[in-house]
């Protein structure tokens, strides 16, 4: 795999390169890949491994040159997670970081636009974390709202 050759580590997973990386070196790896043909940043996703008490950030990159997909995986601790922002490399990372900040509560140093993205006025646990129970929240909030009590009235 080309990506593994470039970086010098990683494994192949279903025809895609999977490169584990530390928090600090992720930036250099992505930059190196970008310079070596991996020009298309596909997405940044996050997985909550609650058993291992860590978050996994996965940077997906694609190379039109080598026709190859690379996943750079960064593991962060679950309490006070923070990561370096990489929006200067690819502008769209900014949006992914906003979403992950909102949904998982991960802080991205250097991203000045970590404003509410999908939710408005959200004060609970970040919803995509595994310890947030969507069903319970919905029952607590939306099912507790009373019905409109109507008077016995011919007029209405």
């Amino acid at each position: 795999m080309k990506a593994i050759e470039i970086i010098g580590k990683g494994e192949e997973m279903h025809g895609r390169a999977y490169i584990p990386s530390g928090r600090e070196e992720a930036g250099t790896i992505i930059k190196k890949l970008k310079e070596n043909g991996f020009a298309h940043f596909v997405m940044l996703s996050c997985v909550d491994w609650i058993d291992k008490n860590e978050f996994e950030l996965v940077y997906h990159m694609w190379s039109y040159e080598h026709k190859e997909h690379a996943m750079i995986s960064v593991r962060l601790p679950r309490d006070n997670p923070s990561m370096f922002s990489m929006h200067e490399l690819f502008p769209q990372i900014e949006t992914y970081e906003r979403e992950i900040h909102e949904m998982y509560g991960i802080d991205f140093e250097g991203n000045s636009r970590l404003t509410p993205f999908l939710l408005e006025g959200w004060h609970d646990t970040p919803p995509m974390r595994k310890d947030f129970d969507s069903k319970k929240f919905a029952e607590d909030v939306f099912d507790s709202i009373p019905e409109i009590k109507e008077e016995e009235d011919e007029g209405i």
Binding site: K135, A138, F142, D143, E147
Partner: peptide
Amino acid sequence: YWDSYNTVKRLDR
């Protein structure tokens, strides 16, 4: 979306 955290369920309320 009966168990979604972001959708209101019964509009007539």
